[in-house]
Structure formats: structure tokens, C-alpha cells
Nucleic acid binder design. Structure first.
Length: 575
DNA sequence: GCCGTTTTCGGCCCGACTGTTTTCAGTCG
């Protein structure tokens, strides 16, 4: 049973309890435990075997016992009893917008609806409006939301797309009369790997006119809701966007609120309560009902005696405790990156020449760029033969003398880790290169033991400097290889091999929680773009965002080092 | 059901928006 499957059981329990009408805090407890299990980064089995289930935040005695039963037997009696009481199909009904536990329970008890199909049929037949408190409008909304669900218009989008769409809208918003400031908030600002809807926040006095203008933007297909301070719309491509408008004197608290995460905000509000304050997007209220406004985000944190907490850390993963103790990490920043250690050219499957790639790197102010084209076995990517690899070396020398000293081009390879764990080039060929990245692209579906051993074998090859996109996942398209990450981290630390945080928004691999575990084990990381076009070098912001979500500091990142230090490290390894 | 530098029992965030209502419940973030 995977972490995701176990988390799903507890999430379903939470939903069923909620429909059943159980105490909300019991529901929240199950939901919190489900989230914690899903975001572990470690294998639930390992924690179970070590008897440390109750060390997971949100897991106490009762839920630990249920995890134990689930992992031992593959089943959970408590869940099965619950599912006999409340039809489990109702969980899917909750995924329909505007349908929560109360309505789902009434649809079930009063109309005998237990699935989305049955709900759709009832709505089409006009039976929902017969319930008290429901009307034709609610019915039409629910029907529309069922269609949106069917068309998967509710899927989360990749960070790259979210960034692009958001920037476009922010540009327009900033151009509106009276707008002082417009910024991205929500999971995009926190650099979560996928984004549900876009949350934008605007500082302006005249919220009404800004919102009116916003819903008229050409990108907007329809308005889902609009009030005094916020509007919610759907764009032509199905992207959902929420815009909040607050007066500039509230901008800080509003931005903080809209950035989330929800769990982080709940913690802050609890802290506020303990001080006799109430925190909302409008700032603080004292017990005497006096307002404390926050024009800047730092004001919100300062009122709680906390330093400003970077958005990427705001996930209720210990950041508030660290802030209270004055132990927030000094996170890596984009400007810390001195080079990119993984890029492709048209020698293999890249879309640009080495010169074009180098010029793009120069423009970003990088000190060095590694050209690391694919190796011979990756036919689909036009992998290089040994002969062509050596020709490429000569070509790089020529290019280097042409462009001068401001950018050092290093010759590397992204060498295939073959199905048996051997590498696609012999050791003597790898030894000729400046730097070697070893990656998995093929046979990713091998059993855990096999694929883990395969990566461990590559890690122990003394020519290997970096493991590229370690798990091989493609977000939303291809599951990660079933690796024992803790063994990988231990081996990487032992052999002093860096693990990549691949910055391509389709990969983000290592992911945030893995990066955090890796540095705790003493691993070195490398934040690389894996660029196949000059513009892909910009992906580094997503890699840095992911690293920051993993509490990564610059000293753990190989490519924050200046060229001479990097070359020193590489030379030491060759000995 | 979980949790504790005020607690091992008694708490557990806060407000906007919508639809159906004459004052509010439900949903969402």
C-alpha cells in the first residue's frame, strides 16, 4: 500500500464522517492525518516498522492503530463499517462544486442520491429544486459544476502555465486606474508543484471599478461570482482565477491571507487568539474591537513577534516553530545560482545550437554552463555515440575560444542508467568529461528492489557526479519510479554525489519534501533546468522555488558555488 | 481525534459570497 493509497482511505473516512454529521473536529483530525501521510516524503511502511507512526503530526493513538491495521491486513474494518452506513459514492458527489457535506446528506436521505450520475439525473429532472432551501438557480449551478467536473476543468495546472497566465493578468491589472499594486498569491506564490486556481491580489481604493474591469478582460469567459472585495472567473481555457481587491492599507494582511496555505493561516490565527487578537484578511482586531491594519506582510508577522516567513515555507511544516526560535533557514535564491549543470543542444534532442544556449546563459549572467547531451542508447533523443561525444568536445573548445572567458562551457553528458544499473558509456569515456549526470529514462516500472539497486549502482560509479531527475516522474503523466529514497539519500551522501532538483515544471524532481530529507541526510543538491531550448534556462525559478519549499540553503547546492570551487570539487572526485 | 512554554481536559480560524431567505445556512478558500 502506497502513502497515497493510505492517505486516500483516511480522506474518505473524513468525508463519510462529515456527511454522517459527525463532530467537525473529528473530521478535521482525519483530514489532517491524511494530508500529513500524503506529504511525508518517506515511506509510511518504514515509519510503521520503526514504530514511529505517532511522530507524524496529526497522528495520535487512534489513527496510528488504524494505519497499523491497514498496513498489516490491507483493510480497515472501521472504514468498511462506515461505508456500509454512508454510501461511499457520495464522496465523489462532494467533488461537485457547491455541494458540501450538508447538501450531499440531504440529496442522499431525501432523494436517495448516492452517485454523481444520480445527482445529474435528479438535477435534469428538476427534482433538486423541490428541496427546501434549494431553487432553480442552485440546481442549474450544480448541473454546470457536474459538467465542469466531467470535462476535468477542475484539474490542477503545472506551475509553468500558472506563472505565465498569472503574469499576463497581473500586467493588465497593474495597468488599471487606481491600482497601486497587483501580485500573485495562493499556491503559485508558494511554488507548489501544481496550482488549482490562480489567486491574485490587488491594492486599490476603488475595489468595485477594478473588479468590473477585471471581469471584462478578454481572457475571461464567464464570471463565477462577484462581490464587493473579490471576483471569481473562468478563462477561455478553463483556468479559474480569483481576484481580491483591498485598500492599500490592508494590502499586507490581504496578501498574507490569500497566499496561505490554509493550514499556515490557521496556525497564525491561533497564535493571534492567544494574544487576544483576531486575525483576518483585514488585519487584526483587538478584544476592544480596535483595528490594527497591516499595509505590509511583515507587519502581520511582526504583530505576532515573528520574523517574515518566506511563502515557500508556509505549509505548516514546522516553519512557525522555527520562526519563533529564530531558526528560519536562509533559503537559496535565484541570484545564488552561478551556473546550470544540465542542458541539452541540437547535438542530441535540444532545439538550439550550443552557441545559442551559451548566449542565453550569458544573458542570464551565469558563470558556467554544462552541455550534457544524451548518451547513445537513448535513440529517441538522438543520443551521442562515443565518436560524436568526442567531436562535441572539440566543438566546445572552438566555441569557448570564440565567446571568451565570461562564460565557461563545461562538457558533460546525461548518461543513461541502463536496465541493469550499468552506464551507457564505459568508465574511460566518462573520465574524459568535465562532469557526468546519470539519469533514468527507461524501465522506470521495475520493482522497488530492482530499480533502487540500479540507482545505487550508478551512485557508486566514481565517474558519476550528479543523479539527474532521480525519480523520473512527469507530473500528472508518469508516476515516479518506486525508489527507496532513504537508501538513495544515504548512498548519495556517502559517495558525495549530488542529487538534482530538476527545474522543468513538468518534473520538479526531486520534489520539495525529498529535497528536505536529502539535505537532512547531508546530501548535496544541484538545481538544474535540463534546458532543451534557450528559454528553458528560465525554468530555474521553479527549481529554486522547489528547493526553498524543501528548506534548502545555498551551501547545499552545488551550482551556487563559483567556478573555481566547483572545479576543485570535480577534480577532487577524480582522484 | 489531536494536542499542550497558560491546558492530560477543553479547546480546536475567519470572513466573503450565494441563494433562499426576511436573518441565515452552506460552501469555499
Amino acid at each position: 500500500m502506497t502513502n497515497l493509497e493510505a492517505a486516500d482511505v483516511f480522506r474518505r473516512i473524513a468525508y463519510l464522517l462529515e456527511i454522517k454529521g459527525e463532530a467537525i473536529y473529528r473530521v478535521l483530525a482525519y483530514r489532517r492525518a491524511a494530508d500529513a501521510i500524503q506529504e511525508l516524503g518517506r515511506d509510511l511502511h518504514d515509519i510503521w516498522e520503526q514504530g514511529e507512526l505517532q511522530k507524524i503530526p496529526g497522528v495520535g493513538k487512534a489513527i496510528a492503530e488504524k494505519i497499523d491495521e491497514l498496513l498489516r491486513t490491507g483493510k480497515l474494518e472501521y472504514y468498511e463499517k462506515l461505508a456500509a452506513e454512508v454510501p461511499p459514492g457520495l464522496v465523489e458527489v462532494l467533488a461537485v462544486g457547491d455541494v458540501g457535506p450538508k447538501k450531499a446528506a440531504r440529496f442522499w436521505k431525501e432523494l436517495n442520491i448516492t452517485s454523481v450520475d444520480e445527482l445529474e439525473k435528479a438535477a435534469q429532472e428538476g427534482r433538486l429544486r423541490e428541496l427546501s432551501g434549494m431553487g432553480a438557480k442552485s440546481e442549474a449551478r450544480i448541473l454546470e459544476n457536474i459538467h465542469a467536473l466531467r470535462e476535468q476543468r477542475t484539474d490542477r495546472m503545472l506551475l509553468g502555465k500558472a506563472e505565465q497566465v498569472s503574469e499576463q493578468l497581473l500586467e493588465r491589472l497593474r495597468g488599471l486606474k487606481g491600482v497601486v499594486q497587483a501580485e500573485a498569491a495562493g499556491s503559485l506564490r508558494r511554488f507548489r508543484e501544481t496550482v488549482g486556481d490562480l489567486d491574485l491580489i490587488v491594492g486599490a481604493k476603488n475595489s468595485g471599478t477594478v473588479l468590473e474591469a477585471f471581469i471584462q478582460f478578454p481572457e475571461v469567459a464567464r464570471t463565477l461570482g462577484q462581490g464587493d472585495t473579490k471576483a471569481s472567473v473562468e478563462l477561455h481555457d478553463g483556468t479559474r482565477v480569483q481576484v481580491w481587491v483591498h485598500p492599500p492599507e490592508h494590502f499586507g494582511s490581504a496578501w498574507q491571507y490569500a497566499t496561505g496555505s490554509q493550514a499556515h493561516n490557521v496556525r497564525l490565527r491561533e497564535l493571534a487568539q492567544k494574544r487576544g487578537l483576531s486575525l483576518s484578511e483585514r488585519g487584526f482586531k483587538t478584544e476592544q474591537d480596535d483595528d490594527i491594519t497591516c499595509a505590509k506582510e511583515v507587519d502581520v508577522y511582526a504583530a505576532l513577534d515573528l520574523p517574515w516567513i518566506p511563502p515557500e515555507l508556509r505549509e505548516d511544516r514546522g516553519e512557525i516553530r522555527a520562526a519563533q526560535a529564530g531558526e528560519l533557514p536562509q533559503l537559496v535564491e535565484v541570484d545564488d545560482l552561478k551556473g546550470d549543470l544540465h542542458a541539452h543542444s541540437d547535438w542530441s534532442d535540444g532545439g538550439a545550437s550550443m552557441r545559442e544556449m551559451a548566449e542565453a546563459a550569458l544573458e542570464l549572467g551565469l558563470e558556467y554552463l554544462v552541455v550534457s547531451d544524451h548518451s547513445r542508447s537513448l535513440g529517441v533523443a538522438n543520443g551521442l555515440s562515443i565518436e560524436r561525444l568526442r567531436e562535441q568536445r572539440d566543438e566546445i573548445s572552438r566555441l569557448q575560444s570564440e565567446i571568451g572567458d565570461s562564460l565557461k562551457i563545461l562538457h558533460g553528458t546525461e548518461v543513461e542508467i541502463l536496465a541493469d544499473g550499468s552506464l551507457d558509456f564505459p568508465d574511460e569515456v566518462l573520465a574524459e568529461l568535465d562532469i557526468v549526470i546519470a539519469s533514468l529514462h527507461m524501465s522506470l516500472r521495475q520493482p522497488r528492489e530492482v530499480v533502487t539497486e540500479r540507482l545505487l549502482r550508478a551512485l557508486s560509479n566514481q565517474n558519476v557526479d550528479i543523479i539527474g531527475h532521480p525519480t523520473g516522474r512527469l507530473i500528472g503523466q508518469r508516476e515516479p519510479a518506486d525508489l527507496d529514497m532513504e537508501r538513495i539519500f544515504r548512498a548519495a551522501a556517502e559517495h558525495d554525489v549530488a542529487l538534482e532538483i530538476n527545474a522543468n515544471p513538468e518534473r520538479l524532481d526531486l520534489r520539495d519534501v525529498h529535497a528536505r530529507l536529502a539535505i537532512e541526510q547531508g546530501c548535496l543538491l544541484a538545481i538544474n533546468t535540463d534546458a532543451h531550448h534557450p528559454e528553458h534556462l528560465q525554468f530555474r525559478i521553479f527549481g529554486v522555488g522547489t528547493a526553498r519549499r524543501g528548506w534548502v540553503t545555498p551551501d547545499s547546492v552545488l551550482n551556487t558555488w563559483p567556478l573555481d570551487k566547483l572545479q576543485g570539487w570535480l577534480a577532487d572526485r577524480k582522484r
